[in-house]
Amino acid sequence: MEHRRIVGIDVSKDRLDVHVLPSQEAFAVSRDATGLVELCRRLGDTVDLVAVEATGGYETLVAATLSDHGMPVVIVNPAQVRAFAQALGQRAKTDPIDASVIARFAEATRPQIRLLPDGAARLLSDLMARRRQIVEMIASERQRLYRTEPPRVRKSIERLLKALERELGTIDHDIDGAVRGSPLWRETEDLLASVPGIGSIIARTLLAELPELGRLDHKKIAALAGLAPYTRQSGLWKGKARIGGGRAVVRTALFIGAQVAKRWNPPLKTFYERLIAAGKTKMVATIAVARKLLVILNAILRDRTPWQNA
């Protein structure tokens, strides 16, 4: 009987270096359609886990292709892999060595497998990412306009702003068509947006970037969003709890939602005011509101029941 295998893949712009445990098989394929077909053929159907290191987006197509072929895929954090390599005393760095370290990291830590989105969900995620980029460019150009005096330069900035605003309208139209064109996404967006503090942009960010919402318990979903506090303690010293990690885009969206909810969502407003009265800082109280808001949204999608103002 063939052993189940763990695979580490180091991704670069044009090439995939692969290392397989426990056989120590190592090979490389091109990062294109031909190479991905060859990769799936060589790995076959006896793979226990495939770990792909996040590499600036180059890993997305690789992970999606392997997942579509039924392989259990996880995208691993490169900082954690580097720390693991240092702990092993691994100083040499080449692509084949990196693939070996990734495989050993996956074997040692057994990271949780996250279901990868299908093609429609990936498109929505890409559209939402593009929207964020355009919004950031508009904000930057508006700041330049505010600081600029020469009329010819101001006109250049104004022309670019108009073009960016037109493109933002086009992207919003595409996103709206994708979400409202899907009965499931439309229902899910309506459920999320039923909560005071959650508008369509936040709802669609959660649709695209947190597909696990409604499927996990409140502790796990808070950890995925980077809103689960972790303690810092050594001996008699105990530091303040912090939040971090998780999906920064989701955390930012929920923080914005919390800013609205603490003013206009009655139960969360009461919760926020109680924390302030207890001596918590505004930042700590707002983060707590964001975490509670996430728990509420998770329960709403779990039960498929819209918000009810208790």
Rank of each mutant, 00 (worst) to 15 (best):
V37R: 15
A261I: 00
L168V: 02
A225T: 06
R304D: 04
R263M: 13
L61V: 14
K155T: 09
E187Q: 14
D68T: 15
R215D: 13
D14C: 00
T65G: 03
G235L: 09
V249E: 10
I287F: 04
T34H: 12
L224E: 09
A163Y: 13
I198T: 08
E158I: 03
K219I: 04
I113P: 12
L268K: 05
V179R: 00
V289N: 01
K13L: 09
P151R: 05
T205M: 04
F255M: 04
D303W: 11
L275A: 04
T286P: 06
L36M: 08
R82S: 12
P22M: 08
L207V: 09
T286G: 09
W264N: 15
A92I: 08
R131D: 00
Q143I: 02
R5M: 12
Y146G: 10
F27T: 13
Q143V: 08
D118V: 07
T231S: 15
G56K: 07
I157A: 10
L293N: 03
N298T: 07
T270W: 01
S234T: 08
N265V: 07
R304K: 13
A121M: 11
S12T: 15
P96Q: 05
T205C: 02
G235W: 07
R242G: 08
A64C: 06
E189K: 06
A87D: 09
L161H: 11
A83Y: 03
G35S: 13
V18G: 02
T55H: 05
V62S: 12
V260T: 11
S194L: 03
D45A: 09
L115E: 14
L207I: 01
L224A: 03
T60N: 13
V73S: 02
A285H: 10
T231I: 14
R104P: 08
K269V: 00
A79W: 01
L168F: 02
G57I: 06
G246A: 01
L124C: 04
M71L: 15
V50F: 12
L49S: 04
Q112D: 15
P22D: 06
L207A: 03
I276C: 03
F105I: 02
P111T: 07
R131P: 01
E2L: 11
P117C: 05
D98M: 02
V289Q: 04
V7R: 01
D95V: 05
R4S: 09
R291Y: 10
D10L: 08
L168P: 02
R302M: 15
L224T: 05
P266K: 04
V11M: 07
E2W: 04
L127Y: 11
L39C: 09
N298L: 00
P183F: 00
I75A: 11
L66T: 09
K155I: 10
A310Q: 11
L115D: 15
S67M: 06
R110P: 07
S140P: 01
I287K: 07
A54H: 04
L236F: 06
